[in-house]
Design a protein around this nucleic acid. Structure first.
Lengths: 155, 155
DNA sequence: AGTGATGTGGGAGAAAGTGGGGACTTTTCT
DNA sequence: AGAAAAGTCCCCACTTTCTCCCACATCACT
């Protein structure tokens, strides 16, 4: 019931607000309604977690040991770029400016449903990522990811 | 539900006061509201614990065995540099000057939410720490942590 | 075509961050 | 001991940022 999918491009106004796509909003778990966490993604994009999904991430981070160097680094570099945001009465979110800069987002942003979370891209970066991925590589990656679990593929 | 996250840079005035970030303040447990403990961190930064979290630290330290060298050292070097501080009516804290010296903090300071506690860095030291962080190693840690958090991907 | 939901823009008020003055306490120096 | 210096805490004030609210245009559906 709450698996995000689809792609939606919206514009950003002068105050840094973006409409949250209505179709995605309908998929958000009611427990988390209006409450999200944005965090820097691995590629040049942002991840948006509804609160209920974020709790899983936090649980994983809390297992990192604060008194080992690797544990602290992991935690610090993940949490420092995470921030709570929520929808306003018009179902918009305001993305912190640091995060916009990181993701190269200025006047438009693309939401991509990714199952448990949502990615936010600048159109330019998304296009670059698309271009750097040729069709063969995509097929290979797809096989690698899906091949194992998909037994109907075998015969 | 009160897990600190985010990164906020604030300036320090002539009297040594720093605004405590509003977004972090909203995450402080109401039991501890306004009351904190600063302590020297392991890297060149300070740790800031809300009172309720500090009690857990104290409890852990009290379990350290006083009759082992490691136990004594851990306890001594943590407690000796710990100090109570609290927010003033404008939600500012005054960091003791020797703590500032230790962390190299002069005109600006960066707060980093670390889950149960908060780190305070000088911008310079933080940047140094960032530069010494190997990007590939971090990505590996990142995937490891995130992979664990996304266990609900299975269904 | 009408109606309601959705995406976009702007104005006003509230909140956050910053700086400084003044009263009071504590420390230090002669 | 007494005075000067430093530190602490409260109040006030200003600027910037955020957020709430209203308005309007567009789209989708019946």
């Amino acid at each position: 019931m709450h698996s995000f999918k689809g792609q939606y491009e919206h514009s950003i106004d002068d105050k840094g607000r973006i409409s949250f796509p209505a179709k995605l909003r309908k998929l958000v778990n009611p427990d988390a309604q209006d409450r999200f966490v944005v965090v820097r993604g691995i590629e040049s994009c942002l991840y948006l977690y509804p609160e209920n999904e974020w709790l899983n991430v936090e649980a994983a981070l809390n297992q990192a040991n604060n008194f080992t160097r690797a544990g602290r680094i992991a935690k610090r570099n993940f949490l420092r770029f995470a921030e709570d945001i929520s929808l306003d009465k018009q179902n918009r979110i305001a993305i912190p400016s640091d995060h916009c800069t990181f993701a190269g987002i200025s006047s438009k942003a693309v939401f991509i449903g990714m199952g448990q979370y949502i990615e936010i891209w600048s159109p330019e970066n998304l296009q670059k990522a698309d271009e750097s991925l040729d069709a063969d590589a995509f097929e290979e990656i797809f096989e690698q990811v899906m091949g194992g679990g998909n037994s109907s593929d075998a015969d």
